[in-house]
Design a protein around this nucleic acid. Structure first.
Lengths: 191, 191
DNA sequence: ACCTGAACACCGTTCAAGT
DNA sequence: ACCTGAACACCGTTCAAGT
Protein backbone atom coordinates (compact mmCIF):
# COMPACT_ATOMS: atom_id res chain seq x y z
CA UNK A 1 0.00 0.00 0.00
CA UNK A 2 2.85 2.39 0.83
CA UNK A 3 4.60 1.66 -2.43
CA UNK A 4 1.36 2.05 -4.37
CA UNK A 5 0.51 5.45 -2.88
CA UNK A 6 4.04 6.81 -3.09
CA UNK A 7 5.35 5.70 -6.49
CA UNK A 8 2.24 4.42 -8.26
CA UNK A 9 1.05 1.11 -9.61
CA UNK A 10 3.62 1.04 -12.40
CA UNK A 11 6.48 0.62 -9.97
CA UNK A 12 4.71 -1.62 -7.49
CA UNK A 13 6.71 -4.71 -8.45
CA UNK A 14 7.35 -7.90 -6.57
CA UNK A 15 11.00 -6.98 -6.47
CA UNK A 16 10.33 -3.49 -5.10
CA UNK A 17 8.18 -4.99 -2.35
CA UNK A 18 10.86 -7.52 -1.46
CA UNK A 19 13.46 -4.75 -1.29
CA UNK A 20 11.19 -2.65 0.94
CA UNK A 21 10.71 -5.61 3.27
CA UNK A 22 14.42 -6.41 3.27
CA UNK A 23 13.76 -9.90 2.08
CA UNK A 24 14.55 -12.08 -0.93
CA UNK A 25 12.17 -11.78 -3.88
CA UNK A 26 11.23 -15.41 -3.62
CA UNK A 27 9.97 -15.01 -0.05
CA UNK A 28 7.02 -13.06 -1.46
CA UNK A 29 6.13 -16.05 -3.58
CA UNK A 30 6.10 -18.36 -0.61
CA UNK A 31 3.64 -16.11 1.20
CA UNK A 32 1.24 -14.89 -1.46
CA UNK A 33 1.74 -17.14 -4.47
CA UNK A 34 2.27 -14.66 -7.30
CA UNK A 35 1.76 -11.05 -8.31
CA UNK A 36 -1.86 -11.59 -9.22
CA UNK A 37 -2.60 -12.92 -5.72
CA UNK A 38 -0.61 -10.08 -4.18
CA UNK A 39 -2.72 -7.51 -6.00
CA UNK A 40 -5.91 -9.37 -5.17
CA UNK A 41 -5.12 -9.24 -1.48
CA UNK A 42 -4.21 -5.58 -1.66
CA UNK A 43 -7.45 -4.76 -3.44
CA UNK A 44 -9.53 -6.66 -0.88
CA UNK A 45 -8.05 -4.50 1.87
CA UNK A 46 -8.68 -1.35 -0.12
CA UNK A 47 -12.30 -2.29 -0.69
CA UNK A 48 -12.83 -2.99 3.01
CA UNK A 49 -11.32 0.39 3.94
CA UNK A 50 -12.56 2.76 1.27
CA UNK A 51 -16.05 1.44 0.69
CA UNK A 52 -17.52 3.21 3.72
CA UNK A 53 -19.96 5.99 2.87
CA UNK A 54 -21.34 8.81 5.00
CA UNK A 55 -24.81 9.95 4.03
CA UNK A 56 -25.66 13.48 5.09
CA UNK A 57 -28.52 15.93 4.87
CA UNK A 58 -32.30 15.74 4.94
CA UNK A 59 -34.60 14.60 2.19
CA UNK A 60 -33.91 11.97 -0.48
CA UNK A 61 -32.52 14.27 -3.18
CA UNK A 62 -29.99 15.94 -0.87
CA UNK A 63 -28.98 12.64 0.66
CA UNK A 64 -28.47 10.94 -2.69
CA UNK A 65 -26.39 13.87 -3.94
CA UNK A 66 -24.25 13.63 -0.81
CA UNK A 67 -23.58 9.96 -1.51
CA UNK A 68 -22.42 10.83 -5.01
CA UNK A 69 -20.16 13.64 -3.90
CA UNK A 70 -18.66 11.77 -0.99
CA UNK A 71 -17.87 8.75 -3.15
CA UNK A 72 -16.41 10.81 -5.95
CA UNK A 73 -14.31 12.80 -3.50
CA UNK A 74 -12.96 9.70 -1.79
CA UNK A 75 -11.96 8.13 -5.09
CA UNK A 76 -10.38 11.27 -6.52
CA UNK A 77 -8.16 11.54 -3.45
CA UNK A 78 -6.60 8.17 -4.20
CA UNK A 79 -6.01 7.86 -7.93
CA UNK A 80 -3.45 5.10 -7.56
CA UNK A 81 -5.79 3.10 -5.41
CA UNK A 82 -8.60 3.43 -7.93
CA UNK A 83 -6.17 2.31 -10.62
CA UNK A 84 -5.40 -1.01 -8.90
CA UNK A 85 -9.00 -1.79 -8.14
CA UNK A 86 -9.92 -1.07 -11.74
CA UNK A 87 -7.01 -3.13 -13.04
CA UNK A 88 -8.05 -6.11 -10.93
CA UNK A 89 -11.60 -5.81 -12.22
CA UNK A 90 -13.02 -5.30 -8.72
CA UNK A 91 -14.77 -1.99 -9.31
CA UNK A 92 -18.17 -3.54 -8.68
CA UNK A 93 -17.07 -4.77 -5.27
CA UNK A 94 -15.59 -1.38 -4.36
CA UNK A 95 -18.92 0.22 -5.07
CA UNK A 96 -21.05 -2.28 -3.21
CA UNK A 97 -21.33 -0.21 0.01
CA UNK A 98 -22.41 2.84 -1.98
CA UNK A 99 -24.87 0.66 -3.86
CA UNK A 100 -26.25 -0.49 -0.54
CA UNK A 101 -26.92 3.00 0.83
CA UNK A 102 -28.31 4.15 -2.51
CA UNK A 103 -30.79 1.31 -2.50
CA UNK A 104 -31.81 2.29 1.02
CA UNK A 105 -32.45 5.91 0.01
CA UNK A 106 -34.31 5.01 -3.15
CA UNK A 107 -36.57 2.44 -1.54
CA UNK A 108 -37.48 5.15 0.95
CA UNK A 109 -38.87 7.01 -2.06
CA UNK A 110 -41.24 4.15 -2.74
CA UNK A 111 -40.25 3.64 -6.37
CA UNK A 112 -41.05 0.39 -8.20
CA UNK A 113 -38.34 -2.25 -7.85
CA UNK A 114 -37.35 -2.20 -11.52
CA UNK A 115 -36.87 1.56 -11.54
CA UNK A 116 -34.86 1.50 -8.33
CA UNK A 117 -32.45 -1.04 -9.76
CA UNK A 118 -31.91 0.98 -12.93
CA UNK A 119 -31.57 4.28 -11.07
CA UNK A 120 -28.95 2.87 -8.70
CA UNK A 121 -26.96 1.52 -11.62
CA UNK A 122 -27.19 4.77 -13.55
CA UNK A 123 -26.02 6.88 -10.62
CA UNK A 124 -23.10 4.59 -9.88
CA UNK A 125 -22.08 4.50 -13.54
CA UNK A 126 -22.06 8.26 -13.58
CA UNK A 127 -19.70 8.35 -10.61
CA UNK A 128 -17.35 5.70 -11.98
CA UNK A 129 -17.25 7.46 -15.31
CA UNK A 130 -16.60 10.85 -13.81
CA UNK A 131 -13.74 9.53 -11.70
CA UNK A 132 -12.12 7.64 -14.55
CA UNK A 133 -12.36 10.66 -16.85
CA UNK A 134 -11.03 12.92 -14.15
CA UNK A 135 -8.02 10.68 -13.58
CA UNK A 136 -7.46 10.62 -17.30
CA UNK A 137 -7.53 14.40 -17.53
CA UNK A 138 -5.14 14.98 -14.63
CA UNK A 139 -2.77 12.30 -15.84
CA UNK A 140 -2.39 14.15 -19.13
CA UNK A 141 -2.63 17.86 -18.25
CA UNK A 142 -1.18 18.94 -21.57
CA UNK A 143 -3.36 17.02 -24.00
CA UNK A 144 -0.89 17.83 -26.78
CA UNK A 145 -3.34 19.83 -28.86
CA UNK A 146 -4.44 23.04 -27.19
CA UNK A 147 -8.13 23.89 -27.25
CA UNK A 148 -7.33 26.67 -29.70
CA UNK A 149 -6.12 24.11 -32.22
CA UNK A 150 -9.09 21.83 -31.65
CA UNK A 151 -11.68 24.46 -32.37
CA UNK A 152 -11.88 26.68 -35.37
CA UNK A 153 -14.38 29.54 -35.80
CA UNK A 154 -15.78 27.27 -38.50
CA UNK A 155 -17.05 24.80 -35.90
CA UNK A 156 -19.03 27.47 -34.12
CA UNK A 157 -20.01 29.97 -36.80
CA UNK A 158 -20.88 33.43 -35.55
CA UNK A 159 -20.55 32.45 -31.92
CA UNK A 160 -17.28 33.73 -30.40
CA UNK A 161 -18.89 33.44 -26.99
CA UNK A 162 -19.29 29.67 -27.30
CA UNK A 163 -15.84 29.30 -28.78
CA UNK A 164 -14.44 30.96 -25.69
CA UNK A 165 -16.29 28.54 -23.41
CA UNK A 166 -15.23 25.51 -25.44
CA UNK A 167 -11.61 26.61 -25.44
CA UNK A 168 -11.43 26.70 -21.66
CA UNK A 169 -10.40 23.52 -19.87
CA UNK A 170 -13.45 21.59 -18.78
CA UNK A 171 -14.37 21.82 -15.11
CA UNK A 172 -14.99 18.17 -14.35
CA UNK A 173 -16.54 18.91 -10.98
CA UNK A 174 -19.10 21.20 -12.57
CA UNK A 175 -19.95 18.59 -15.20
CA UNK A 176 -20.41 15.98 -12.52
CA UNK A 177 -22.60 18.24 -10.39
CA UNK A 178 -24.79 19.02 -13.36
CA UNK A 179 -25.20 15.43 -14.55
CA UNK A 180 -25.83 14.04 -11.10
CA UNK A 181 -28.39 16.72 -10.31
CA UNK A 182 -30.27 16.07 -13.53
CA UNK A 183 -30.23 12.33 -13.01
CA UNK A 184 -31.28 12.39 -9.38
CA UNK A 185 -34.06 14.86 -10.09
CA UNK A 186 -35.39 12.62 -12.83
CA UNK A 187 -35.28 9.63 -10.52
CA UNK A 188 -36.90 11.40 -7.57
CA UNK A 189 -39.67 12.83 -9.71
CA UNK A 190 -40.16 9.37 -11.20
CA UNK A 191 -39.61 10.08 -14.90
CA UNK B 1 -2.71 -2.47 -35.04
CA UNK B 2 -2.99 -6.13 -36.00
CA UNK B 3 -1.14 -7.23 -32.89
CA UNK B 4 -3.25 -4.94 -30.73
CA UNK B 5 -6.56 -6.22 -32.02
CA UNK B 6 -5.55 -9.88 -32.04
CA UNK B 7 -3.66 -10.38 -28.77
CA UNK B 8 -4.34 -7.20 -26.81
CA UNK B 9 -2.32 -4.32 -25.50
CA UNK B 10 -0.54 -6.44 -22.90
CA UNK B 11 1.31 -8.39 -25.54
CA UNK B 12 1.89 -5.55 -27.97
CA UNK B 13 5.61 -5.34 -27.24
CA UNK B 14 8.43 -3.87 -29.25
CA UNK B 15 9.88 -7.33 -29.58
CA UNK B 16 6.59 -8.84 -30.77
CA UNK B 17 6.32 -6.14 -33.42
CA UNK B 18 9.88 -6.75 -34.58
CA UNK B 19 9.21 -10.47 -34.83
CA UNK B 20 6.01 -9.85 -36.85
CA UNK B 21 7.97 -7.61 -39.24
CA UNK B 22 10.80 -10.11 -39.49
CA UNK B 23 13.29 -7.52 -38.40
CA UNK B 24 15.71 -6.96 -35.51
CA UNK B 25 14.25 -5.36 -32.40
CA UNK B 26 16.58 -2.41 -32.71
CA UNK B 27 15.28 -1.51 -36.18
CA UNK B 28 12.06 -0.36 -34.50
CA UNK B 29 14.06 2.07 -32.42
CA UNK B 30 15.70 3.56 -35.46
CA UNK B 31 12.30 4.26 -37.03
CA UNK B 32 10.07 5.36 -34.18
CA UNK B 33 12.35 6.21 -31.27
CA UNK B 34 10.90 4.21 -28.40
CA UNK B 35 7.78 2.42 -27.25
CA UNK B 36 6.08 5.62 -26.09
CA UNK B 37 6.49 7.13 -29.57
CA UNK B 38 5.30 3.90 -31.17
CA UNK B 39 2.11 3.98 -29.12
CA UNK B 40 1.65 7.68 -29.79
CA UNK B 41 1.77 7.11 -33.52
CA UNK B 42 -0.61 4.18 -33.30
CA UNK B 43 -3.07 6.21 -31.28
CA UNK B 44 -2.97 9.11 -33.73
CA UNK B 45 -3.99 6.73 -36.50
CA UNK B 46 -6.75 5.28 -34.40
CA UNK B 47 -8.10 8.72 -33.60
CA UNK B 48 -8.13 9.69 -37.26
CA UNK B 49 -9.97 6.49 -38.19
CA UNK B 50 -12.45 5.99 -35.38
CA UNK B 51 -13.44 9.54 -34.59
CA UNK B 52 -15.90 9.78 -37.45
CA UNK B 53 -19.51 10.03 -36.33
CA UNK B 54 -22.72 9.53 -38.27
CA UNK B 55 -25.64 11.61 -37.06
CA UNK B 56 -29.03 10.23 -37.94
CA UNK B 57 -32.66 11.06 -37.46
CA UNK B 58 -34.78 14.17 -37.30
CA UNK B 59 -35.01 16.62 -34.44
CA UNK B 60 -32.35 17.55 -31.91
CA UNK B 61 -33.22 14.98 -29.24
CA UNK B 62 -33.21 12.04 -31.64
CA UNK B 63 -30.05 13.24 -33.35
CA UNK B 64 -28.16 13.72 -30.09
CA UNK B 65 -29.22 10.28 -28.90
CA UNK B 66 -27.96 8.81 -32.17
CA UNK B 67 -24.57 10.43 -31.62
CA UNK B 68 -24.36 8.87 -28.18
CA UNK B 69 -25.35 5.42 -29.34
CA UNK B 70 -23.14 5.43 -32.40
CA UNK B 71 -20.09 6.52 -30.40
CA UNK B 72 -20.70 4.02 -27.64
CA UNK B 73 -21.22 1.24 -30.16
CA UNK B 74 -18.03 2.06 -32.06
CA UNK B 75 -15.98 2.06 -28.88
CA UNK B 76 -17.47 -1.11 -27.46
CA UNK B 77 -16.57 -2.95 -30.66
CA UNK B 78 -12.88 -2.23 -30.15
CA UNK B 79 -12.05 -2.64 -26.47
CA UNK B 80 -8.34 -3.02 -27.11
CA UNK B 81 -8.25 0.13 -29.16
CA UNK B 82 -10.02 2.09 -26.44
CA UNK B 83 -7.50 0.72 -23.96
CA UNK B 84 -4.48 2.15 -25.82
CA UNK B 85 -6.05 5.53 -26.36
CA UNK B 86 -6.95 5.70 -22.70
CA UNK B 87 -3.48 4.58 -21.63
CA UNK B 88 -1.85 7.26 -23.77
CA UNK B 89 -4.10 9.89 -22.24
CA UNK B 90 -5.59 10.85 -25.60
CA UNK B 91 -9.24 10.24 -24.79
CA UNK B 92 -10.06 13.92 -25.26
CA UNK B 93 -8.64 13.88 -28.78
CA UNK B 94 -10.54 10.69 -29.66
CA UNK B 95 -13.77 12.40 -28.70
CA UNK B 96 -13.12 15.64 -30.50
CA UNK B 97 -15.16 14.75 -33.62
CA UNK B 98 -18.11 13.72 -31.46
CA UNK B 99 -17.69 16.94 -29.49
CA UNK B 100 -17.81 18.83 -32.76
CA UNK B 101 -21.10 17.35 -33.95
CA UNK B 102 -22.63 17.65 -30.50
CA UNK B 103 -21.83 21.34 -30.44
CA UNK B 104 -23.44 21.69 -33.82
CA UNK B 105 -26.67 20.02 -32.67
CA UNK B 106 -26.85 21.96 -29.43
CA UNK B 107 -26.23 25.34 -30.96
CA UNK B 108 -29.09 24.56 -33.32
CA UNK B 109 -31.20 24.45 -30.18
CA UNK B 110 -30.29 28.04 -29.43
CA UNK B 111 -29.06 27.42 -25.88
CA UNK B 112 -26.81 29.94 -24.12
CA UNK B 113 -23.11 29.33 -24.70
CA UNK B 114 -22.31 28.37 -21.11
CA UNK B 115 -25.06 25.77 -21.02
CA UNK B 116 -24.02 24.31 -24.34
CA UNK B 117 -20.45 23.82 -23.15
CA UNK B 118 -21.57 22.07 -19.96
CA UNK B 119 -24.13 19.92 -21.76
CA UNK B 120 -21.59 18.73 -24.33
CA UNK B 121 -19.14 17.84 -21.59
CA UNK B 122 -21.78 16.03 -19.54
CA UNK B 123 -22.96 13.92 -22.48
CA UNK B 124 -19.43 12.97 -23.47
CA UNK B 125 -18.53 12.08 -19.89
CA UNK B 126 -21.54 9.82 -19.74
CA UNK B 127 -20.39 7.97 -22.86
CA UNK B 128 -16.77 7.64 -21.73
CA UNK B 129 -17.91 6.40 -18.34
CA UNK B 130 -20.33 3.90 -19.79
CA UNK B 131 -17.72 2.46 -22.13
CA UNK B 132 -15.06 2.19 -19.45
CA UNK B 133 -17.46 0.52 -17.05
CA UNK B 134 -18.66 -1.82 -19.76
CA UNK B 135 -15.12 -2.87 -20.58
CA UNK B 136 -14.52 -3.43 -16.89
CA UNK B 137 -17.58 -5.62 -16.54
CA UNK B 138 -16.84 -7.79 -19.56
CA UNK B 139 -13.20 -8.16 -18.60
CA UNK B 140 -14.22 -9.66 -15.27
CA UNK B 141 -17.37 -11.65 -16.02
CA UNK B 142 -17.16 -13.59 -12.77
CA UNK B 143 -16.80 -10.76 -10.27
CA UNK B 144 -15.77 -13.33 -7.64
CA UNK B 145 -18.69 -12.60 -5.32
CA UNK B 146 -22.03 -13.56 -6.81
CA UNK B 147 -24.92 -11.11 -6.49
CA UNK B 148 -26.51 -13.50 -4.00
CA UNK B 149 -23.59 -13.00 -1.65
CA UNK B 150 -23.54 -9.24 -2.10
CA UNK B 151 -27.15 -8.73 -1.13
CA UNK B 152 -28.85 -10.00 1.96
CA UNK B 153 -32.57 -9.70 2.64
CA UNK B 154 -31.43 -7.31 5.34
CA UNK B 155 -30.39 -4.72 2.75
CA UNK B 156 -33.80 -4.67 1.16
CA UNK B 157 -36.21 -5.44 3.99
CA UNK B 158 -39.58 -6.80 2.94
CA UNK B 159 -38.82 -6.34 -0.74
CA UNK B 160 -38.03 -9.67 -2.40
CA UNK B 161 -39.00 -8.11 -5.72
CA UNK B 162 -36.19 -5.56 -5.53
CA UNK B 163 -33.75 -8.16 -4.28
CA UNK B 164 -34.45 -10.19 -7.37
CA UNK B 165 -33.74 -7.19 -9.61
CA UNK B 166 -30.55 -6.31 -7.78
CA UNK B 167 -29.28 -9.87 -7.96
CA UNK B 168 -29.50 -9.94 -11.72
CA UNK B 169 -26.46 -8.84 -13.69
CA UNK B 170 -26.77 -5.19 -14.65
CA UNK B 171 -27.74 -4.47 -18.26
CA UNK B 172 -25.21 -1.77 -19.10
CA UNK B 173 -26.95 -0.86 -22.33
CA UNK B 174 -30.20 -0.23 -20.51
CA UNK B 175 -28.45 1.93 -17.92
CA UNK B 176 -26.80 3.94 -20.64
CA UNK B 177 -30.03 4.42 -22.55
CA UNK B 178 -31.78 5.60 -19.43
CA UNK B 179 -29.07 8.05 -18.33
CA UNK B 180 -28.55 9.49 -21.78
CA UNK B 181 -32.26 9.96 -22.33
CA UNK B 182 -32.66 11.76 -19.01
CA UNK B 183 -29.67 13.97 -19.64
CA UNK B 184 -30.58 14.89 -23.21
CA UNK B 185 -34.16 15.61 -22.25
CA UNK B 186 -32.98 17.94 -19.50
CA UNK B 187 -30.66 19.72 -21.91
CA UNK B 188 -33.21 20.05 -24.67
CA UNK B 189 -35.89 21.34 -22.32
CA UNK B 190 -33.29 23.72 -20.89
CA UNK B 191 -33.31 22.75 -17.20
C1' DA C 1 7.67 -23.73 8.21
C1' DC C 2 10.15 -20.13 6.12
C1' DC C 3 13.81 -18.10 3.45
C1' DT C 4 17.68 -18.04 0.08
C1' DG C 5 20.41 -17.79 -4.55
C1' DA C 6 20.64 -19.29 -9.08
C1' DA C 7 18.39 -19.60 -13.17
C1' DC C 8 14.88 -18.89 -16.85
C1' DA C 9 12.13 -16.44 -20.05
C1' DC C 10 10.60 -12.31 -20.78
C1' DC C 11 10.75 -6.84 -21.06
C1' DG C 12 12.62 -1.81 -22.99
C1' DT C 13 16.66 0.48 -24.38
C1' DT C 14 21.53 1.80 -25.83
C1' DC C 15 25.46 1.52 -28.61
C1' DA C 16 29.08 0.24 -31.45
C1' DA C 17 29.46 -2.03 -35.61
C1' DG C 18 28.14 -3.33 -40.08
C1' DT C 19 26.35 -2.44 -45.21
C1' DA D 1 20.36 5.84 -44.48
C1' DC D 2 19.08 1.65 -42.48
C1' DC D 3 19.82 -2.62 -39.99
C1' DT D 4 22.28 -5.83 -36.88
C1' DG D 5 24.04 -8.35 -32.44
C1' DA D 6 25.65 -7.80 -27.98
C1' DA D 7 24.83 -5.97 -23.75
C1' DC D 8 22.43 -3.71 -19.81
C1' DA D 9 19.03 -3.07 -16.39
C1' DC D 10 14.84 -4.32 -15.42
C1' DC D 11 10.54 -7.69 -14.96
C1' DG D 12 7.75 -12.26 -13.01
C1' DT D 13 8.39 -16.94 -11.78
C1' DT D 14 10.35 -21.66 -10.61
C1' DC D 15 13.08 -24.73 -8.11
C1' DA D 16 16.47 -26.94 -5.57
C1' DA D 17 18.77 -26.00 -1.54
C1' DG D 18 19.34 -24.28 2.97
C1' DT D 19 17.92 -23.53 8.22
Amino acid sequence: MEILESVGIERLTVRALAAKLGVAVTAIYWHVGNKQALFDGLVERIIAQIGQIRVRGQGPEVRILSIGHSLRHTLLERPNVVAVVHRQGRTAALFQPARRVLVRELTALGLPAAETAVAVGAILNLIVGSVLVDRQVERQPAQQATPEELWTPDDVPDNPDLLRYLSQPVDQQELFDYSLRVLVRAVVSGV
